[in-house]
């Protein structure tokens, strides 16, 4: 017994984690299977698009602006060690569109959207609104989950595109005003070294992260425990799961996209 104790201490969370991943995968498959089958709820979809896309713009814009600026300072300082200050514009651009734009955008949306979806659906669950939907011949997966997941999958790449541009602009502001770059040269360097796939890969990442964020919000909301405490736990779990999955997926996608 005691000899096996270390294994059970390790084994239990691993098994629990795998079971959770399995349940999430089933939930994801179910969501996708409902995507193509009517009835559709366009109004819910548009409302979710506004909530997730439009209202996340300020947060994403601010984070990108500051990150782009900081990135320019860091690369300048780092580049100065081997007299490569000139790489600032291109590295800022590549770093933003490939990595920081999608990841930071995804994480900010996770904080804002996974939590609010989990809290909203969780509250609906504990106040029997989900049960009420069923008695009104409305499938909660189609009415609640599908519109949110679809909206996030479309909205986050758009947010990433905006974030990329603002991040590059933040780098430009710092580059021109603090580091003494010539405005025209800065823009030319940014353009010349940036490839279409750099941008596109970041947008694909954004779509994957959007899917993850809304899926986690819906999954934890639908499986919320009872009472205010249950909703609180569901909200926390949704944000944590979304953030971890975003970072893990980001690594996997980066391997897939760029390691060939």
């Amino acid at each position: 017994m005691t000899a096996l104790a270390p294994f059970s201490i390790l084994g239990r969370p691993v098994l629990g984690g795998l079971a959770l991943l399995g349940r999430i995968a089933i939930f994801a498959a179910e969501t996708i299977s409902h995507l193509a089958r009517p009835p559709f709820y366009p109004k819910e979809f548009l409302a979710a698009l506004m909530q997730i896309g439009w209202f996340s713009l300020p947060v994403v814009a601010l984070t990108s602006l500051f990150t782009g600026g900081a990135l320019a300072l860091q690369i300048y300082a780092g580049g100065a060690r081997f007299s490569a200050e000139a790489v600032v514009p291109s590295i800022v651009a590549i770093g933003m569109v490939r990595e920081l734009g999608p990841v930071l955008g995804g994480l900010m949306v996770a904080a804002r959207v996974a939590s609010s979806i989990a809290a909203e659906i969780g509250t609906m669950k504990v106040t029997e609104q989900i049960d009420a939907l069923v008695t009104l011949s409305t499938n909660p997966m189609k009415y609640l989950t599908v519109p949110r997941v679809l909206a996030a999958t479309i909205a986050v790449p758009a947010l990433v595109a905006v974030g990329d541009s603002i991040g590059i602009f933040g780098g430009y502001l710092v580059g021109v005003n603090r580091l003494g770059f010539n405005p025209a040269t800065y823009l030319k360097n940014t353009r010349d070294f940036l490839e279409v796939w750099d941008i596109a890969s970041g947008l694909w990442k954004g779509a994957a992260f959007g899917f993850i964020v809304a899926l986690m919000g819906c999954y934890y909301g639908m499986n919320s425990g009872r009472g205010a405490q249950g909703v609180g736990r569901a909200t926390k779990a949704a944000v944590v799961a979304a953030s971890v999955l975003i970072l893990a997926t980001n690594y996997i996608l980066t391997e897939v996209f760029f390691s060939a």
Binding site: T123, M124, T127, E128, Q129, D131, A132, T135
Partner: peptide, 11 residues
Amino acid sequence: GMLFQGGALFD
């Protein structure tokens, strides 16, 4: 049709 104990209205 069903009336739920707590109303269960969509808020």
